[in-house]
Design a protein around this nucleic acid. Sequence first.
RNA 1: GGAGAGAUGGCCGAGUGGUCGAAGGCGCUCCCCUGCUAAGGGAGUAUGGGGUUUGUAGCCUCAUCGAGGGUUCGAAUCCCUCUCUCUCCA
Length: 421
Amino acid sequence: MLDVKGLREDAEGIAEKLKTRGFDLDVASFKRLEAERKRLQVEAEQLQNERNVQSKQIGILKAEGKDVSAVMAKVSTLGDTLAQLTQNLNTILSELNNFYACIPNLPHESVPIGQSEEENVEITRVGTPRTFHFEVKDHVALGEALGQMSFEKAAKLTGARFVVLQGDLARLQRALGQFMLDIHTKEHGYRESYVPYLVNDASLLGTGQLPKFKEDLFNTTAGYSLIPTAEVSLTNLMRDDIVAEKDLPLQWTALTPCFRSEAGAYGKDTRGMIRQHQFEKVELVWISHPEESYACLEKLRSHAETILQRLELPYRIVSLCTGDLGFCAAKTYDLEVWLPAQNTYREISSCSNTEAFQARRMQARFRNSKGKPELVHTLNGSGLAIGRTLVAIMENYQDEAGRIHIPKALQPYMNGLEVIA
RNA sequence: GGAGAGAUGGCCGAGUGGUCGAAGGCGCUCCCCUGCUAAGGGAGUAUGGGGUUUGUAGCCUCAUCGAGGGUUCGAAUCCCUCUCUCUCCA
């Protein structure tokens, strides 16, 4: 959520900035709602004040044993007017709240202006894609030939966009999770966390999945939703909390499955493990001091990069342009790994600073040097998406015989195994 | 699944219809005294919103005692629903 006061002061200016990310702020209806809100709220509060004062008076008179019928008669008429007013006010307030909840974050000034993915800016490339002297196979062909990956079996169990891994590939997926968690907890200072995979609506509202992106979630009959990312569980740990300034920044990581309905992705990446309804991910979350958050974003990004470097996977870093930013993000770096079979770089991590956008929704704060609560900044990034890392390893480390060589750094996690065959 | 108890400010804990946003204690901050790894005295110490304002200052004001409804001139206190915690039974 944006700062409401800022919006009231300069709706036009904010609308202009939002336009760069393709969002049309309805300034006219906002101003209309806001004027109405102000009128009703002032009036309602005046009446409440009147009622409070008179009621207190009744208490005092009664204590003195005096007659109160005159005052009571006077106050009792207030009730109806007040009820009508507050009802109108509540209608306006919930309209306004919904309005606020649907406005995306403002892009940071360093974010390149652009309309779509096409205009994202490549920052750097790391590593050189290997040249193959044979025709490369994609991970589906490789995995099925090994008899360790089956989309057919998964379709039987559930449906499309699921996978079954068995044998060494299943182990590889598990190894990747351990490998990533070990690096982040031992070398990067993250606190390992185990969190619920089902969350309530308040949490989803906090991190911005609701109210706008309900259709991307899997809901349950219990009223909870499956997390689309551990960002939801981890970041909401801070909801309605106030921490000491000296405790910032907080760094949390968790390995969880993620569940996404991929509602808007019909026909996209239908083959293979790139876009699944269920996948594993190691998530990295920072709770930072507002003044530090952009420095933290650089660290967060470098932590995700470390994984790719240790696995010796070629990748590039992209700064998302305004038009491609996620709803909550003020700035986002995507890490894209090289996939030889697709002959392109594909997203494997997305690192974002949401500034105070989520914190404001969640009332996540720290006590500043003046002793006043102040909103923290929240950041999140994948470190990394495990399914896609598995794909990247399979495709980049394949040999002519269709075997998968295990990256050096990962071999200890595979019980010394060097090749999957 | 059944029966019961509970949810109050950073923490503990009073408060069962009226000047209660809430006693007291602990903790914390500041000041005084003391001059020494201690003690004593005093003051302060919730959060969110709105109005006013050049102002994140001040002033005025509304809301909040698990959440949401209700009764009442007036609710932490009474009623209903829900959530969570604990105890006992199965």
